[in-house]
Design a protein around this nucleic acid. Structure first.
Lengths: 174, 174
DNA sequence: AGGCTCATGTAACCGGTTACATGATTAT
DNA sequence: ATAATCATGTAACCGGTTACATGAGCCT
């Protein structure tokens, strides 16, 4: 794949649990090439700008497999969220502010859920020539994303309800 | 609070959505002091090492409030997980490897859930002199963590079941 | 004697973002 | 014209980690 292809792949399928700027992708490709994990070949194109296609080397494959073999670290259970940090300090906002923040979070989640509806197509696109036992893992990550976002929406609804019941009718919309 | 106190607070209550090394905390305190957001005073102690207690300044409060007022960004819906990246590439492992990885994830989550059982005490400890409308937000973040981890466990169980049904009895434990 | 809690920090490094910079081809 | 897609990169910076370094007092 070229750097551009990788950026596209990130957008269409990996975006639930990883994202990357193209600038970062190109820097990383350079590093990986320097380490001998990948190897790039320039492809001259007449109708489009030239591109550099990278392939994994034998050393790279070994490194990749040993990374996989390490399995899940403890870091898999903890994640970082500046949004939850703001929720934590919700007592320092006005009740209107904090409720609005949670409402915005909820609608953002709903929009995200809608966007996710398109992933089955990506899985088909990239996985058309693969064995089903390969793509089942892709589906796992999608399932995780779905469940996570649904949990976010339900949680936000409960929080909003609690805040409304404490702070009275003045918080309600309409 | 001193840097040490902050590190303790991270461990006992904020750990669901943020964590920090003490080295990082001290660096950050220095930066914040330089910016004029906080102000530190050395407290001389005879029985223990001296410590530096930091307090927020008026400028710091303003900055904090404007940060809160910005509300939730879109980044609140996407998170980064090297674990899910490994799941994504599960097709490159042996079925035994990938199933074991998911089992480890599940037990890690269960251990985490157990550890979380102690948070009500932390909320009481830090919130004993606060109004209940302040601590409700702390509870919100705890609820989020609980729900999230439960979702992780259920998801992992489903994945393991699917892998077992595809790959047959040879994956089962015992 | 050994380990825990209290307490603070530095240096080197890595992972990642933001802003900047370029430029060809194709579709409307 | 102008916007989108294709295509690649650099420089400055920030956020955060790892490893290192120190040292007193308390408990067993």
């Amino acid at each position: 794949m070229s750097g551009y292809d990788i950026a596209k792949a990130f957008e269409s399928s990996l975006q639930f649990f990883w994202h990357a700027q193209n600038s970062h992708i190109y820097l990383e490709l350079k590093k990986l090439e320097k380490k001998g994990y990948i190897c790039g070949k320039t492809v001259i194109q007449s109708d489009r700008p030239n591109k550099k296609i990278f392939s994994i080397t034998e050393t790279g494959k070994k490194e990749f497999m040993s990374w996989l073999a390490k399995g899940a670290g403890e870091e898999s259970t903890h994640f970082k969220s500046s949004f939850l940090m703001k929720v934590f300090f919700g007592g320092n906002m006005t009740p209107i502010q904090s409720t609005d923040m949670l409402r915005k979070f909820k609608t953002d989640c709903e929009a995200y859920l809608k966007k996710m509806g398109k992933t089955p197509e990506s899985i088909e696109k990239y996985g058309y020539d693969m064995e089903p036992y390969q793509t089942i893992y892709w589906q796992f990550t999608v399932d995780f994303g779905y469940g996570f976002i649904k949990h976010c929406i339900e949680w936000a609804e409960l929080c909003i309800k609690k805040l409304e019941s404490i702070n009275g009718q003045d918080l309600k919309e309409d």
